[in-house]
Computed example of a mutant assay.
Amino acid sequence: MRFSGPALPPLICSVPKLLQFSLDRRLIINFNLLKTLLKSESNAISAIKCSATLLVCNLDRTVFPKLKILEDFGVPTNVILKLLTTQSKSLMDHHHRFDEIFEMVKRVGINPKSPLFAHALVVLGKLPERAWVRKVENFKGLGWTEDQVIVAFSKHPYCMTASIEKIKKNMEFFRERFGWSPEYVSRSPVVLSFSYEKRVLPRSRVFRVLEEKGFYEGRIGARQLMMGDKEFLKRYVLKYCEQVPEIIDDDIRGKIEHFGLIIGGSEENILAVNS
């Protein structure tokens, strides 16, 4: 095993009972099992760093049966191994809790071959049942139906990890500024995870300036929030910056400089240096 130097103290601190187990009868055996399963020593180390309990638990009783359940349901091997390597804590729950989470993800209807299936398992593994209920009630208080919450979760499971305050602030802004309904947002739920201060508000300001100057008409859709910063700058800022110079504030200027874009000039010159 190659846990030495600076990597060793944090590992032992995360699971002090490592010191209580036999090196030969448990730690090395588990490490070798993981190394074989994950195809490399580096992958095994990544999994253990994610959850050092993998070194001390009974893998045959705790983890491997869950992997078999996922495999039998049709979850691809690469998705299962990625789950074990990067989110192994989600496989350390008691069997009854894992069964509950697994059944819930199945009921949602996420394709087991999609990486979203694993993401949904991870999210629900981190979210106690009472927290899930509280999140659903929060959505209902914002005008959502439970079916719309399920649709949103199936498309972007991490929308359920956003704080209640963040969801409320974004939803209220989406409704008042863009006229988006809960049904519309549920079909593009990633927007709920966006930072209000860093993405939602600055992009809304760009469109407000363009609207006031007559350069943009029509509805602002989720796509305008979801596109990458570089594409957004090219399409909605640099294209109009000569006619509407006030569109560029300090925040926008910083992003333009970050991507190496050129302010001004013909459309052909408004290109990314590295594009």
Rank of each mutant, 00 (worst) to 15 (best):
V133S: 14
E137V: 00
K113E: 15
H95S: 14
K135E: 11
G143E: 09
P112D: 09
L81N: 03
L55S: 01
F102S: 03
P65V: 02
L84G: 05
R107Y: 10
S90A: 15
G109C: 05
I80D: 11
L54Y: 01
I69R: 12
K140E: 15
K135A: 11
H119A: 09
G125Q: 01
L83N: 00
D93P: 02
R97Y: 13
F73P: 00
F117D: 02
P128K: 00
L124S: 01
F102T: 04
T145G: 07
K82I: 00
L70G: 11
K89E: 10
F139R: 01
E103F: 06
L81I: 03
F98G: 06
M92S: 13
I69D: 14
N78C: 06
H96M: 08
D72S: 13
L59E: 08
V151W: 08
K126S: 05
V75T: 04
W132Q: 15
N138H: 12
V75E: 02
G74S: 05
S88N: 07
P65Y: 07
A120Y: 02
E146K: 14
S88Y: 03
T86L: 11
K126H: 02
V105A: 06
L54R: 01
V56Y: 03
A120V: 04
K66E: 07
V133E: 15
R130Q: 11
F139M: 10
L91F: 09
N58T: 07
V151H: 10
W132H: 11
P128E: 01
P112M: 04
L124P: 02
R107W: 09
D60Q: 12
A131F: 08
L55R: 02
F102G: 03
Q148I: 02
E103N: 13
I80Y: 08
V136T: 10
Q87F: 13
V136L: 12
L142C: 10
A120N: 06
F139K: 03
T86H: 13
M92N: 11
V122W: 00
L121F: 03
T85R: 15
P76M: 03
R134M: 10
L81S: 05
S114E: 02
I69T: 13
N111Q: 09
F73L: 07
L142D: 11
M104T: 14
V149H: 10
K135T: 08
A131M: 08
A131I: 08
R61F: 04
L91P: 10
K113S: 15
E137K: 14
D72P: 00
A131L: 07
F117N: 04
M92Y: 07
R107K: 14
G125P: 01
L70P: 13
V122P: 02
T62L: 08
L67A: 08
I150C: 05
K106H: 14
Q148W: 05
T85P: 07
P76R: 01
L84D: 05
E100M: 09
F64L: 14
H96E: 15
